[in-house]
């Protein structure tokens, strides 16, 4: 059947990607990968792993409160024209190519503020990228909570924050956590917005938020694969394997648990 062939053509590249990257990535694995810094286009990936972790961590620290707060507004108090406008603009921001956001950050943080390539610029850029996702997923999760729970809480004399933090958010926690995990996966896999904001560094973090470039895993993938030697290629595959492992593990885990809770 032609349709089955189409599905095969769609799914086969995914399996091939996972296969090629796993085989090449695993053969490049060693303890050295996690304990030494990149030197030129060889060495280990410690600086890049740490950089990706830091960028993701600070991006999440900025984006999670903002995204969940915005989601609370949209779901609980935003069923009006202003809410629709925010929802529309949030979708526009989601659809904006990440390179455009990266270039915007370059103009603002690197050129105008003079921060130089830095952790702060990178984390803020990624935060702008994931906030709209978080807001919309939080909104969807909170909307699933039945209205009777809100009414019951208000009838007991609960205030707005009590209703949201003690009743609605706990009831919708799995959805909100799902959203945060998906946002985490996005920020680990992003490259384009970091080119113009994070720069690259062969060293681990020196504790400064500005005036100090940071390395990140996806940079290793796209630059080292263009180097001529096998050692750089091995590093690129190892980095790709790590990134893919995190992204796929989060996405598969989320899908499996969400499915289970839906059926029970």
């Amino acid at each position: 059947m032609a349709c089955g062939l189409a599905l095969l053509l769609v799914v086969f590249p995914l399996l091939d990607i996972v296969w090629v990257i796993t085989v090449n990535g695993l053969s490049a694995f060693s303890v050295k990968l996690f304990t030494t810094n990149t030197t030129g286009a060889s060495g280990g990936l410690r600086n890049a792993i740490e950089g990706t972790a830091l960028i993701t961590l600070f991006a999440m620290l900025i984006a999670v409160p903002m995204g969940i707060g915005a989601g609370i507004h949209l779901s609980e108090y935003g069923k009006n024209k202003t809410g629709s406008a925010i929802r529309f603009l949030s979708d526009v921001l989601t659809g904006t190519p990440s390179i455009v956001l990266g270039y915007f950050s370059y103009i603002i943080f690197i050129i105008s503020f003079g921060w130089g390539f830095s952790l702060a610029a990178a984390a803020i850029t990624i935060a702008i990228l994931i906030v709209p996702y978080l807001a919309r997923i939080t909104e969807l999760a909170l909307e699933q909570v039945p209205n009777t729970m809100r009414e019951a809480a208000y009838a007991l004399g609960a205030t707005d924050p009590t209703v949201v933090f003690k009743v609605i958010l706990p009831a919708a926690s799995s959805g909100v956590i799902t959203g945060a995990l998906l946002a985490l996966a996005i920020s680990v896999g992003e490259t384009a917005p970091l080119i113009y904001t994070a720069g690259w560094s062969n060293y681990t973090w020196d504790g400064r938020f500005t005036h100090s470039p940071v390395g990140y895993l996806t940079y290793v993938i796209w630059t080292f694969i263009d180097q001529p030697d096998a050692q750089s290629h091995a590093l690129a595959y190892a980095a790709a394997f790590l990134v893919m492992l995190v992204v796929l593990a989060i996405n598969i885990g989320v899908r499996l648990t969400v499915r289970r809770t839906k059926f029970v």
């Binding site: 990607i17 490259t191 996806t218 790709a240 796929l248």
Partner: peptide, 18 residues
């Protein structure tokens, strides 16, 4: 359908590497 959806989450740079 989960396999199909998973294609959408593979980072762009990994597609480039492949």
């Amino acid at each position: 359908s989960m396999l199909v959806e998973l294609i959408a989450v593979v980072p762009s740079v990994v597609f480039g590497l492949w």
